[in-house]
Each structure stands twice: as C-alpha cells, then as structure tokens.
C-alpha cells in the first residue's frame, strides 16, 4: 500500500498532466466534453456510493438482527448481487424491468444498480466490522441495561464504523470504476464521451490517455479523502490499529 504522501504526489502529477495537455492543440477540443462527462461520472459515483452505504448497512443489520424472513431476504439479496455480474444487473434493470411495467430513467437505473451491487459487498464489510467489536462491549451494554437499539446506536456502531472505513474506501473506488458501465445504457458519462469522441475524431490515443488520467485523479482523490476520514475517525479510540 502506498503512503498518503506519494498518493498526493501522484494526484498532483496526474492533474498537472491533464491541465498541461489540455492547453495543447489536439487535446484542447476534447476537454469541455470530457469535463462534462467527468461531472456526470462524479455525480453517479456520489449518489451510487450513498445508496451503497444505505443498502449495505440495512442488509447487514437485517441479516444480523432482523426477524427470520427479513434475514433470509437480506441473505438472498447479498448472494444474488455478489454472485452475478454488475453489467448483467445493469441490463436486467434497464431492459427487463420495463417488461414488468417499471420504467426507470437511465440515471436512476445506473445509481440503483451500482448502489445495490456495491451495497451487497458492503453488507459483508459492515457485518465483519460489527463482529470485530469486542464481546465485552456488548456485555457491558447489557450490564448497563440498554435496549438492543441503544447498544447498537451508542456503543457498537460507533466503534464498528472505524474498522469499516478502509474497506469502504476500496469499495468506493470499485464503484467509481464500475460507473464506466453506465455508458452502455446511454448515459453520457466520461466513458461514453470518450467513445463518442473516438468515433467522430479517431484520436484514440489522445482521448483514452486523457480519460484514464481523469479516472486516476478521481480514484486518488477518493483514496486521499478516505485516508483523512480514517485518521479523523480513529482519533481518540483507545485501540491500536495494525498497519
């Protein structure tokens, strides 16, 4: 794993490269379109991540503490969305759901699929993090006569959240990379813009190099953000973190 400083250097380098290239001739014409596409990619990644966290936490809690039918439902959700391909899920929601009378806008399909897919992986992270909270914390909460909801809300989850942050960071990067799939359901994100410009200008090397650099910059920014959040969240926690 790279240190936060070398990641920051890489981010600065890739941004400088994009900025430098965008002033030169073959690249200048591509920039407005690519920035528009990148903005769509970022929006989809943000909404998708938000949904993924919601689905992940809900599925993990349902699987651990829900009544039996809910537990089964959560398990089925996790297995199905982890067991099939993200692209198949995307096409299923996009092409098949309308046959059931549910027509969603492409943007909705995109963020919903990404949220559901990544949320299924996230549910396992949440479950593992809750399991990693020392047993004594539960026992002490019981001794203090807390209800189960109080225990989770006040004692267990605040500690579990710290352990969840690094693996969620990895998932957010997976989600960012998966956003490229939504170009296949007609959303004009960064990957779509790249394809479109490639077909009209045939400047393949220029366009795809720029696009790779832009994705790299967004990923590195996510990594740095998550490292900072991790540092802030683990402050004041008595346990040492193994690196």
């Amino acid at each position: 794993m790279m240190g936060i400083r070398s990641i920051a250097v890489m981010l600065a380098a890739s941004l400088a490269l994009v900025a430098g290239l965008s002033t030169t001739e073959p690249f200048r014409t591509f920039m407005p379109g690519l920035i528009e596409g990148a903005w769509m990619t970022v929006r989809i990644a943000l909404v998708g991540s938000l949904l993924a966290v919601l689905f992940g936490v809900a599925a993990a809690l349902a699987r651990l503490y829900g009544p039996l039918p809910l537990r089964w439902l959560a398990r089925a959700y996790i297995e199905i969305f982890r067991g099939t391909s993200a692209l198949v899920q995307l096409f299923w929601l996009f092409f098949v759901l309308p046959d059931f009378g549910i027509s969603l806008a492409p943007f909705t399909v995109a963020v919903l699929t990404l949220g559901l897919n990544v949320g299924a992986y996230g549910a396992e992270i949440v479950r593992a993090a809750i399991g990693a909270v020392p047993r004594g914390q539960w026992e002490a909460s019981t001794a203090l006569n807390m209800t189960r909801g109080q225990m989770l809300r006040r004692i267990i989850l605040p500690q579990a959240v710290v352990a969840m942050i690094p693996p969620w960071g990895n998932l957010f990067i997976e989600l960012l990379k998966a956003t490229a799939l939504v170009s296949l359901i007609t959303i004009s994100d960064l990957a779509f813009k790249a394809q479109e410009m490639n077909q009209t200008t045939f400047k393949t090397i220029d366009i795809f190099t720029l696009v790779l650099l832009i994705y790299l910059a967004i990923s590195l920014a996510i990594t740095i953000g998550m490292r900072l959040i991790e540092g802030a969240a683990s402050r004041g926690l008595a346990r040492g973190r193994a690196h």
Binding site: M10, K177, A180, S183, A191, T204, I205, F208, Y215, L216
Partner: peptide, 26 residues
C-alpha cells in the same frame, strides 16, 4: 512497476478494454 499497478487498479476495466482494442492497432 508500483506506478503501473496503481494506474491499472485505479481506472475502469471497460476503459482499458477500449484502450487495448482501439489503441494497439495504431
């Protein structure tokens, strides 16, 4: 090598597929 790994891991596979398919012929 670490830089290359970081670059490949941080960018979407779909773009890499397009890259190889469209760029290598050039």
């Amino acid at each position: 090598v670490s830089m290359l790994i970081e670059l490949v891991r941080s960018t979407p596979l779909l773009i890499q597929i397009f890259f190889l398919y469209f760029v290598l012929p050039k």
